[in-house]
Design a binder for these strands. Structure first.
Lengths: 233, 233
DNA sequence: GGACAAGACTGACATTTGTCAGGTTTTCGT
DNA sequence: ACGAAAACCTGACAAATGTCAGTCTTGTCC
């Protein structure tokens, strides 16, 4: 990957509200900052592959990454997205397993790689960091439990409405109510866990019911309460 | 819950191969052991309810607990089981969230409750414990990713075969190849994420294909390779 | 700007799975 | 051991969703 002209620093992210390293001493922060490697990734680049060993974790400085698992016949199941302030790759490092997901860039991104020795060193020397990291991991585990239950029990229609609302919460709408993340219909289907055509049909239906508007890949959410009702919140 | 005549000790579990407290000093182990409360739970007892605050976590000393989330119309989605050596309830403690699951006893159980102050104290003072707990949590997160992908992509038939094999791995077969966990058809359906009748029909089909045998609630796995083939391992 | 590939859309039809209803068997508690 | 409730089973039918094929539109690259 290309190297950067402006290398992001941990201090900048901290100043912008990044939380993971909030409890680090200045010395610890300097060690992490000096030990990291930051790279620019273009849309479509793979950060790490399912099945590979990862020797560190990544902080997302800009852009959007999709984290997915490849199932039957190579079909993707998107597990989640990562954006500024999120970290990826730590699960396999800490569990001492191979990566069980692939991370792919969907909006041009900058990621900072932090070697696993630095991660383990922080866990060993800074209990406040450990607690914060565990909090993050356990929240992700709770989200997974919700995800499992939704996929198992909700209809595709309910799920699509819910996914649109979750995307709104995570990535916001602009002034025209357009979702600030651009996904193919296939990617939406890979989040819902259904066939691409099912998503296309339901989006058309939502459009004709005036719940959303569609312009190419752009999706405007016109009726949030209506979508919430369908999503069975 | 009833109190016990024989109170299990942490030392006994350690001697039997329990791993979570493996890195504790003798002093730390004594504090945990003295601070815990052990109770007997009968089949059907609830250990903790979804939505409640939990002020500690539980070590399972004997018996089997099902961990489930309640979805639409009160339908359960079983997330996993816990048996001897497993811990439950730590996720909500560490994430500082309410419990997102319910834990219910399916085989009479003994559980030891460890207060959250002791958990946080260990994390603060024993980095090896922290690393071990994080490893455990991250492995569970990896399993969740698999679960999500399977539910989304596999047919109910594939999933049922897979669930039977997972139950075999976790709870073993006896000499007659009978699964050593007793579940209703509804519970199996709540693991697969499908209707009870679908499970019943598929079990009948597996039986007539000589993959399994059924005697009341007892399920014998007769053809492991056949089940693995169906499960798309 | 043009060409081509990828993605989006639609309809027809097939398959899978769920719901409902009724009857049978097993489990559980006394 | 008995009775009641829970669980299991089965068939018919409905609903949801997937697959396939063909056409149209958008995005990307030169």
């Amino acid at each position: 990957m290309k190297n950067l002209q402006h290398v992001p620093t941990c201090e900048e992210c901290l100043a912008n509200g990044h939380e993971l390293f909030k409890d680090l001493t200045p010395e610890e922060l300097e060690i992490v900052n000096n030990g990291k490697g930051c790279s620019l990734y273009k849309r479509g680049n793979i950060i790490y592959h399912e099945g590979n060993r990862i020797n560190g974790f990544y902080c997302v400085n800009r852009g959007i990454i999709k984290i997915y698992k490849t199932g039957i016949d190579g079909k993707e199941q998107i597990i989640r997205f990562a954006k500024w302030g999120d970290i990826i790759g730590f699960r396999s490092v800490l569990s001492k397993e191979l990566a069980c997901t692939t991370a792919k860039v969907i909006d041009d991104a900058i990621l900072c790689f932090i070697p696993s020795e630095n991660l383990f060193s922080l866990v060993k020397n800074n209990p406040a960091f450990s607690i914060r990291l565990m909090q993050l991991t356990c929240r992700e585990l709770g989200e997974s439990n919700n995800f499992i239950t939704d996929i198992a029990q909700k209809t595709v229609r309910e799920r699509l409405a819910e996914i649109l609302l979750l995307l709104m919460e995570n990535f916001n709408l602009d002034d025209d109510k357009v979702l600030q993340i651009s996904l193919t219909r296939e990617e939406l289907a890979n989040m819902v866990g259904t066939a691409t055509e099912s998503v296309i049909r339901l989006l058309s239906e939502f459009k004709s019911d005036r719940l959303i508007d569609l312009h190419g890949r752009k999706i405007s959410l016109l009726d949030i309460p209506g979508l919430k009702k369908i999503a069975s919140f």
